[in-house]
Amino acid sequence: MPFSHSVAGLRARLRRRADGTPSSAARIRRRSKQRRRLANIAGLLAALVLTGVGYSALAPANAADDAISTQSSAEQAGEELYTRSCISCHGSNLQGVSDRGPSLIGVGEASVYFQVHTGRMPLVRQEADAARKPAVFDNAEIEQLMAYIQANGGGPTLPSGDLREGDLAEGGELFRLNCASCHNFVGAGGALSSGKAAPSLGDANDLEIYAAMLSGPENMPVFGDNQLTPEQKRSIIDYVQTLKEQADPGGAGIGRTGPVSEGLVMWVVGIGALLFGIFWMGTKA
């Protein structure tokens, strides 16, 4: 439309130049000012288009995808899920909302997998500790969310292959060294300060443990591949899962929490049974 305007204006200008009246000269001055303005806008537009095209030619592939909006179908579905369930705390551009949720740019698919697959996200309410609960999204939806987050900022990705391929005993040493101080000897979990807690690993699957080490959810530190190599991570997972599946040779495990539950059993079962026993003897003799 502006282009057709300018063509019509040019024609009119040529016509009026022939008239040669002062009023027409003033009109021509005004028109040329308009023309300069129009030329500036056209130039700016051309420069912008050139920059955009040049950027898309030079920038990384995924950014190019984004710019020319060729999202994969998974990313689109993920964005839809995000807009429905996550946007209120993490913001319209994954930038986070202060006092509600952190930015998700760069957290990567590992973090998404851990948080969503363990049911921690979407959050029920803001509190010290997000507890594990049944997942809201199914596996296909989680993959879509992972694709969307991964597409917008990248970050740690999920591993593949056998996640228990490691040295069992070394895994045990690494677990006691790096993990037991919060998660307990056997991964039973433990309390942290102010209502926070290191969760039990009882329900965690291999991939969740791996993703947690990569992404460092909540109070957990990140164990990047420089801190624990992928082989060491697999060893740790092997140890944790082996311990979980291992029977208790001594009888009932009573939570494997050590002296607290043992003391409880002694006082409730042991002393209780004996008090009953001697009371019985006392009434019978």
Partner: peptide, 18 residues
């Protein structure tokens, strides 16, 4: 389940007997 003693390690929930 506790593992051998190593002064560099300590577990959450370490308790004495009752």
């Amino acid at each position: 389940l506790w593992g051998p003693y190593n002064p560099a390690q300590v577990s959450a929930g370490s308790q004495p007997d009752w």
